[in-house]
């Protein structure tokens, strides 16, 4: 008899509580939203938030694609994944009339080619990938171009993102090509340049490129601006620099997958994030620029004038946004394997 009771208990534990509370399932990048914002949303609306994180667009895409987004209500894909997911019918239309704070959004980031009219996506934050260095070891004039990464002084001292599009992208940029190149010969030229950079690379960081800089394992490298901002808070010697060839830019948006079960709650959440006060709180924590112009007006001068978060418009103009490269990703992957196997 005892064994039966034990068995029944086990079954009961494994069945989730059938409470009638409203829920919202959020799937976001790691370190991309302060906990206080989620708590504030729960307190304001009484909707319980269940929060999960991912570390690459690719792993998010694979999950959403397989389930058609069932199980997630709000997801945060980057520019070219919004385009891809929209084309494949994975995104549910967003009702802009339900968003009272829509008017706070920066018009410069709206109505972009990846989602005309913002029918399926609402911009969350935007940022860049550029150069980082520790100014105790590296003089600012040594870090003005992507080409500076190839300096022999940096032997075994660089940190790079563990992202094939971005690393091979630098190779494309210094050869004068676009980061969205699909021509195999040009990708090969990029591969050859990066191959020459390999002796300088100490670490490919998949989770947090600021760590090797803070640990003093790396003196320079490539980094996302938010990571550089967070690193500088902890250790002011870490500097961020826009290369003269132009940085790589991206926008991350909030979308609702087709299979989402709590679409009304998802709209409430997106509207909450668009509140200028909340957008400000997010920016101060993650160090990426909000897509919210009213939030920028509320910011203290030191943040508003921080070039790591808000680059000069000239820098944005020089830079490039990543787009989907289609099947050319197989060529990138091939060369990436060769780089890492040393062949």
């Amino acid at each position: 008899m005892k064994q039966w009771i034990l068995l029944i208990c086990l079954v009961l534990i494994s069945v989730p509580a059938l409470a009638g509370q409203q829920r919202l399932y959020i799937y976001n990048w790691t370190e991309y939203m302060p906990d206080e914002v989620l708590t504030a949303f729960q307190e304001k609306t009484g909707i319980k938030v269940i929060y999960a994180t991912y570390d690459s667009n690719e792993s998010m895409y694979a999950k959403v694609k397989l389930t058609r987004g069932k199980g997630y209500d709000v997801v945060f894909p980057s520019t070219y994944f919004v385009h891809k997911m929209r084309k494949e019918g994975l995104l549910s239309p967003i009702d802009q009339d339900a968003l009272t704070n829509y008017r706070h959004l920066d018009p410069a980031l709206l109505d972009q080619p990846y989602d005309p009219g913002n029918k399926y996506s609402i911009p969350y934050v935007w940022g860049s990938t550029a150069l980082a260095y520790n100014n105790n070891q590296v003089a600012p004039e040594m870090m003005t171009s992507w080409k500076d990464l190839w300096r022999p002084e940096f032997k075994n001292r660089l940190v790079m993102n563990d992202d094939l599009r971005e690393v091979l992208g630098i190779g494309l940029i210094i050869n004068g090509f676009s980061v969205n190149e699909t021509d195999p010969d040009r990708i090969q030229a990029a591969y050859e340049s990066i191959q020459a950079l390999m002796p300088n690379i100490r670490v490919f960081s998949g989770d947090s490129p600021k760590q090797p800089l803070l640990n003093l394992e790396a003196f320079a490298g490539m980094i996302w601006n938010g990571e550089a901002y967070m690193a500088a808070q902890e250790f002011p010697a870490i500097q961020y620099a826009y290369p003269e060839e132009g940085a790589i830019f991206w926008v991350d948006s909030m979308v609702i997958p087709t299979g989402a079960e709590n679409k009304k709650q998802a709209h409430a959440f997106i509207d909450f994030i668009l509140d200028p006060q909340i957008a400000l709180q997010v920016c101060e924590y993650i160090g990426y620029a909000p897509a919210n112009q009213s939030a920028i007006a509320l910011m203290p001068e030191d943040i508003k004038n921080n070039p790591t978060i808000f680059p000069d418009p000239k820098e944005v103009k020089k830079g490039e946004f990543q787009t989907d490269v289609g099947d050319a990703i197989l060529v990138y992957e091939r060369y990436w394997e060769r780089l890492k196997t040393g062949m």
Binding site: S56, I201, R202, S205, W336, T341
Partner: peptide, 25 residues
């Protein structure tokens, strides 16, 4: 190897993961 070795070599595990996620192959 990724966290302690700096992800500079590709092992079977990374290779399979990349094929599934990045290359979508």
């Amino acid at each position: 190897p990724d966290l302690l070795g700096g992800a500079k070599t590709m092992l079977m595990g990374n290779f399979i993961k990349n094929q599934f996620l990045t290359a979508m192959n």
